[in-house]
Measured scan of single mutants.
Amino acid sequence: MAAGGDHGSPDSYRSPLASRYASPEMCFVFSDRYKFRTWRQLWLWLAEAEQTLGLPITDEQIQEMKSNLENIDFKMAAEEEKRLRHDVMAHVHTFGHCCPKAAGIIHLGATSCYVGDNTDLIILRNALDLLLPKLARVISRLADFAKERASLPTLGFTHFQPAQLTTVGKRCCLWIQDLCMDLQNLKRVRDDLRFRGVKGTTGTQASFLQLFEGDDHKVEQLDKMVTEKAGFKRAFIITGQTYTRKVDIEVLSVLASLGASVHKICTDIRLLANLKEMEEPFEKQQIGSSAMPYKRNPMRSERCCSLARHLMTLVMDPLQTASVQWFERTLDDSANRRICLAEAFLTADTILNTLQNISEGLVVYPKVIERRIRQELPFMATENIIMAMVKAGGSRQDCHEKIRVLSQQAASVVKQEGGDNDLIERIQVDAYFSPIHSQLDHLLDPSSFTGRASQQVQRFLEEEVYPLLKPYESVMKVKAELCL
């Protein structure tokens, strides 16, 4: 049975990233139509530049190519590739079939990587351009969430054990800070992308030097003109047959890092959902379990974690691919890159769409948070109580021993009897502590235990987050809708 299948058929496997999760716009960027249309555009740009620099290419040939950029006979191309065992030459023939007058000058002087690699770089750039505003929107939604809850005390956790208090907004800023680093890295790697350009079979530009009869300047002009037509500021000066596969490492490393950030955020949300302090959106008709109707599973956060793990592992592909590119190139890269580049971007696209949807509907339960604080705060307040007693004339050592005994009794009630923490009640009825009984409410005010959390939130948002989001103001209103 021949390899390949009808990918629109229910009898043929289709990647869930495309069929179930990723956005239509990201799927289109990695589609065959987008790819092969870009090949034709690159052939047109090459012909236009070659004509401008004096090669015998007519206006009629150029116009014929322009008129057929979208006229792609995919069936013919597939048949040609089956016959020739070469995808680029299959599309040269297919393009030439609908451009008979231009057929002889299509791909003039070029090698397969002229269309293959340059198209990949265009796709990487455009895919990054799709991700950047999506990530900015996630940051914006979380920034709104953090600002609104900047002063809401909550129990902090280290080692997932109760620690000092923080605020809900401050905790959210930990998430935002990681995503801001990801946004900066995505922008950097996007701006650092260079075009492969017009380089020939081993990167020496020998074929173009021959076409222009040894004119170095025209060869350099050709490279520059096509690079500018493709919208790049610069091209690699040095290439082998391909652009260095280190570029793929750079791009997928940034995406993998984004995956790590999203995994951490969504894990926190899942843990908070278990504590009943916070939940992701839950639709009115949504079913959490087929057997347990009360369940409210954090399905979206779980999906993000599941896909983020996949995204983090994909960076190993370009690392290994770059390491086995012998001399000017081997074909070890080809099949692998067809999979890992598309999957990385479709996965990143999915987790950003999902995280935006989550961040637009996060639900906080202040009463649950308050109750958990009441359970733990008495123990945390013991040092403040000791200091207040010393100020009232008591002995630190005597007070410490009193607190120690009462704390152990209260802990026994919590752990052995399943009761509430009654340390404060014990202190309130103990005559030894009568000098500070009137101060206990103040000493137990949760806001006095959150330090500068709310001020940190305000400063972080104003100095770091809002300036970073400013270039994306025009796209901030787009909502994230999930079908599944």
Rank of each mutant, 00 (worst) to 15 (best):
L252K: 03
E401R: 14
E50W: 04
P24T: 12
D178L: 00
G288S: 06
L319R: 00
W39C: 15
Y466W: 13
V29Q: 06
V414M: 10
G54W: 03
L84E: 14
C340M: 08
R141I: 10
D182K: 00
F95Y: 11
G8V: 15
A335I: 03
D215H: 10
E283F: 07
W326Y: 10
L165S: 04
P293T: 00
T111P: 03
T321I: 09
C305S: 12
I176W: 02
H91V: 05
T321K: 00
S15L: 15
D333V: 02
D422N: 09
W326H: 15
I287F: 00
Q320P: 01
I249A: 11
Q221A: 13
K246S: 03
L468M: 13
L209W: 12
L130G: 07
S407Y: 02
D6C: 06
S454D: 13
G203F: 05
Q416E: 10
V138T: 08
R141D: 06
A110I: 05
P24L: 10
P318I: 01
K170W: 02
A102G: 08
Y21I: 00
A235Y: 13
T227W: 05
A260W: 04
G214P: 09
V115R: 01
S151N: 11
L468P: 04
E148S: 13
M278C: 11
L352M: 12
D59A: 11
L84V: 05
K218Q: 10
Y114G: 05
A103Q: 13
V262I: 09
C305F: 03
F195R: 02
D268E: 13
L42W: 00
D32I: 13
F327Q: 09
V115C: 10
Y472G: 09
D191M: 09
P10W: 15
D317N: 10
R396D: 01
H91D: 03
D73K: 07
G394W: 07
Q375P: 04
H263R: 03
R194N: 06
M387R: 03
L406I: 13
E60P: 10
L258W: 14
D420F: 06
K391G: 14
N297E: 01
L331A: 03
S412H: 15
P100G: 08
P24W: 08
S290L: 02
H437I: 12
H437K: 11
P435I: 08
R404P: 03
Q164K: 00
S67F: 08
L84G: 07
G418F: 02
L469Y: 08
L377D: 03
M312C: 08
A431S: 11
I369E: 03
G394I: 06
S454Q: 10
Q320Y: 13
E60F: 10
V219S: 06
T58M: 10
E464T: 10
A322W: 12
D349T: 10
E70V: 09
G203A: 02
S31Y: 01
C266E: 05
V465L: 12
W175V: 04
A146W: 01
V88W: 01
A291C: 04
R452S: 13
G96K: 04
V405G: 12
A127C: 08
L461C: 15
H310V: 09
R338N: 00
R20P: 00
A256I: 00
E279V: 06
E64S: 13
N71D: 13
P467T: 12
Q177H: 12
A110C: 08
L255C: 14
R137C: 15
G418T: 02
S359P: 10
V168P: 05
H97Q: 12
H400S: 02
I386Y: 04
L128K: 06
E481C: 14
I287R: 02
F30E: 02
Q63V: 08
L131P: 03
M76Y: 08
D59H: 08
E473I: 14
C304K: 05
E79T: 14
L255S: 06
M312L: 10
L55I: 12
T158G: 01
M26H: 03
S261W: 02
D117T: 00
L155Y: 03
S290F: 02
L179F: 12
K147H: 09
G361P: 06
W39D: 07
K477P: 15
V475N: 15
G451Q: 04
I386M: 01
R85W: 11
T382K: 03
S434G: 12
Q356A: 15
F232L: 13
A47L: 04
W175K: 05
